[in-house]
């Protein structure tokens, strides 16, 4: 358990280092972004030393690291405000989107997985399989416009984009959740099928339990563990997928903040958002592992 936590710390350190060096070896110069390319040599030098860019790479890495430890992610080149403040403003929108998409995953994956496993190789199973295949093959940036076309333009039920109108969260959440729901559904189906073929399931039926009772009391608890692990992974994956989904729907979260920052070459802001998403992903994975260990003592050993 402790070594797992220690591993995570090392990985986090590696992630920070990777993101820092990406920014350090960038072909463009942050000074160009702030002063424009026609600024005089003296001005550039002054700004470089004020920003600490003239110091050796190792020194800069150390000061970036110690800044992060104190919650300081640097200052935006374009807006001259702390990166952490810019991210904090946008984070609630992304969390709302990711949370709703997580609900979409749960409400799609569980019923479909259950039905598919119960009707193995019959038409409900094939239908669920088709959903899984389509869900995995249709990328967010195409599913989003398709849903807008169907529900906003043709049917006129839901707003096209933005976050002000009521119901504006529905289409982004479905867009973000569907592909991950497809993977969870496949996993739950496979896991249930394996559990249902066990001897003790036959025993449960033989002692007089109905299909649903046996399923509810014996099969589901045992089939759930791999699915919980997967859901934990997907919670972090949602943050990654949110970037494209937010751009599709002009959703004002950290994903669209990242893409705007890339357009303006606001390197510290890019690094901040990328770090936040990657580190949340790593920490969520750790928490999922620990939870799985709590639920299944065999894993802890």
């Amino acid at each position: 358990m402790l070594s797992r936590v220690l591993d995570t710390v090392i990985v986090l350190l590696g992630v920070v280092t990777l993101v820092f060096f990406l920014g350090a070896v960038v072909p463009g110069d942050p000074v160009d972004v702030m002063l424009g390319e026609r600024a005089s040599g003296a001005d550039r030098e002054a700004l470089r030393s004020a920003m600490g860019l003239d110091k050796p790479l190792a020194t800069r890495w150390l000061s970036y690291l110690s800044g992060l430890v104190h919650g300081d992610m640097g200052t935006s080149l374009v807006q001259s405000r702390p990166v952490s403040a810019l991210i904090a403003e946008r984070l609630p929108a992304t969390l709302a989107l990711a949370g709703s998409a997580f609900l979409v995953i749960v409400f799609l994956a569980f019923p479909l997985g259950l039905i598919a496993a119960l009707h193995r190789n019959a038409w409900p199973d094939h239908l669920a399989g088709l959903f899984a295949l389509l869900g995995q093959s249709i990328p967010n940036f195409w599913l989003g416009p398709l849903l807008v076309l169907a529900f906003s333009i043709w049917l006129g039920w839901l707003p096209v984009s933005g976050s002000e109108a009521t119901g504006s969260l529905i289409l982004p959440a479905i867009t973000l959740g569907t592909s991950l729901a497809a993977i969870s559904m496949r996993m739950l189906r496979a896991s249930l099928l394996e559990v249902m073929s066990q001897d003790w399931m036959r025993t449960a039926r033989a002692k007089g339990l109905g299909v649903w009772q046996a399923l509810w009391r014996h099969a589901l608890p045992n089939a759930l563990l791999p699915v919980i692990t997967l859901l934990g992974l997907q919670l972090g994956g949602l943050l990654g997928g949110a970037v494209i989904t937010e751009v599709v729907f002009a959703w004002p979260g950290i994903g669209s903040l990242l893409i705007d920052a890339i357009g303006q070459r606001d390197y510290p802001l890019i690094q901040g958002v990328v770090l936040l998403i990657a580190c949340s992903y790593v920490v969520l994975n750790l928490m999922t592992d620990l939870l799985a260990g709590l639920l299944d003592p065999r894993i802890r050993a």
Partner: peptide
């Protein structure tokens, strides 16, 4: 360790970050 570090970036995040810095 390298594998674990690269796996820390969900979805397209690493590609987006690289494209951001490479142009």
């Amino acid at each position: 360790r390298l594998i674990e570090i690269f796996l820390a970036f969900p979805g397209l995040l690493l590609a987006i970050a690289l494209a951001a810095f490479l142009g």
